[in-house]
Design a binder for these strands. Structure first.
Lengths: 278, 278
DNA sequence: GCCCGCCTGCCGCTCAATGGAAGGGTGACG
DNA sequence: CGTCACCCTTCCATTGAGCGGCAGGCGGGC
């Protein structure tokens, strides 16, 4: 409907030229917020789409996008639209918890995919989500569920629950404090039961998580430890529920996770670095 | 008082606090230049290393790095050093010519790796380099040569030459105009001969490139076309020169490249978008 | 033709960005 | 234990880089 009452109010005084925004947000943040407008569903955005999605005025969005494109964070297509640039992909590959972890894990994940014929997932925790670092699919795998680079909820996926169970207590308590809804079922989560389940995950060093939506699958997930101390990732195999006894896969998955741990540990300070300070 | 002269001179007054640099570079560029300091060899940098490598004063580097870290482009380790953050990896995965291309190509590359037992490479052109998007290694592959995310020279690699041969003429002429040195042999390149070779590459739709350093290998490379018009990538198999007749692999590689082309073409406007403007 | 939406260049007004100096902390060396 | 060297962080006066409303140009739909 009408104008949603933007904060113009009476400030219209004067020529209006060159008015700076009252709440100046740092330039860098605005530039980065442009990058957040892209998603797997929308890999191409025009300038005005970019401007609307980020809330940055068009002329400013153009200036920032031009800079980002000059560096290679964005690319401009012949039709004028923008997409994420390969240089950003290039730099992103240097993320130790991203591609480096993936490179270590890939061979073992491949073995698992061959042996089980199902989906094999590797995820790390990023803030309040589990980020899918890699997915390999065996021959008998069900339809695609998640895309690499996608975020999964911590409370209603196998890998997410493992990552949550091993997260530091402060974060875990805060996370459980707010209302959680299982996706995509849209059912509220019983926090007390989840807390108990998380304790059991730590005890068993594994999680077997069933879900009926969008498909009847069982996720068998285990933690991946980094040089002895913390959990750096979660590894999981996704099997259709029609196949009984997903649990018999556990030893194989554990073995693969241990191999990845060993590989990660042998890397220079890599994935679970020494702690000092604080 | 009034000396509005050059920055340094009247240092006595006010102690020279807060002098701005005469040639201010855009903030966004400086922030992004911090990201360029990381490399496969140096995935972890302290603040002062970051400051020295980028040329940004320490206090400014701290401010920028803090912002980048808040967004997830950087991560701060417990020991105070920085690394590239997973959120950047996440966004980088949305690069159509990066991960999307890789996802399309991976199955066919896997088949090639299984069938040949050698290294399979996929690269795109990024500016004046070939960027290695993916590498798969078969069982009999020689030692690792290149890392994913690494840049290769256009004039002295198999994939590079293919990408160069199919680049637009303007770029190609400019590229050949400057002195080229084959790496890592450090031998000047015969530009005339290279130009001729590039024409042959287009004729044959393939390149068979031998090199002795650092290892005796033959690269058999072919172009990957995107929806009919341009070349979007190059696909190559790397075989040791001890195995005769690398050429017999050509049909298999061509088939894989064609499959990738088909996959890329079926993607929405994806990799070789419609052209308008300019 | 007329309208609508998008991209782009323009330009005076500010305040966010700037970097030197200072403070605190840590480790190496003698 | 004192000295030195290096690193990270906070502080702050200064100022030009960033800002966004406006208008012109372009193209597509009706």
């Amino acid at each position: 409907m009408g104008t949603s009452g933007p904060p113009q109010d009476g400030t219209s005084e004067g020529g209006g030229r060159g008015r700076r925004p009252p709440h100046g947000e740092p330039v860098v943040d605005r530039a980065l917020s442009l990058l957040d407008c892209f998603s797997a569903d929308r890999p191409y955005l025009s300038l005005s789409e970019l401007s609307r999605a980020s809330g940055v005025p068009a002329s400013s969005a153009l200036r920032l996008a031009t800079r980002l494109a000059a560096w290679g964070a964005l690319e401009r297509l012949p039709d004028g639209r923008y997409s994420v640039g390969v240089h950003l992909y290039e730099v992103g590959c240097l993320a130790p918890r991203g591609r480096q972890l993936r490179d270590i894990a890939l061979p073992y994940m491949g073995d698992l995919a061959d042996a089980t014929g199902q989906h094999v997932l590797l995820a790390v925790r990023q803030g309040e989500h589990a980020l899918l670092i890699e997915r390999l699919s065996g021959e008998h795998a069900v339809d695609t569920l998640y895309q690499v680079g996608e975020r999964l909820p911590l409370h209603s996926t196998g890998v997410g629950r493992v990552l949550l169970a091993y997260a530091d207590e402060h974060f875990r308590v805060e996370y459980l404090a707010r209302p959680l809804v299982a996706e995509p079922e849209h059912v509220p989560v019983d926090v007390a039961a989840l807390g108990e389940e998380l304790r059991e995950i730590v005890d068993r060093r594994a999680e077997v998580f069933q879900r009926a939506v969008p498909r009847d699958v069982v996720s068998v997930a285990v933690p991946v430890f980094g040089r002895g101390e913390g959990v750096i990732a979660a590894l999981s195999v996704l099997v259709p529920q029609t196949r009984p006894g997903a649990r018999i896969l556990l030893p194989a998955i554990r073995t693969a996770a241990r191999s990845i741990s060993r590989g990660a540990g042998s890397q220079a300070a890599a994935l679970a670095p020494p702690r000092r300070r604080r």
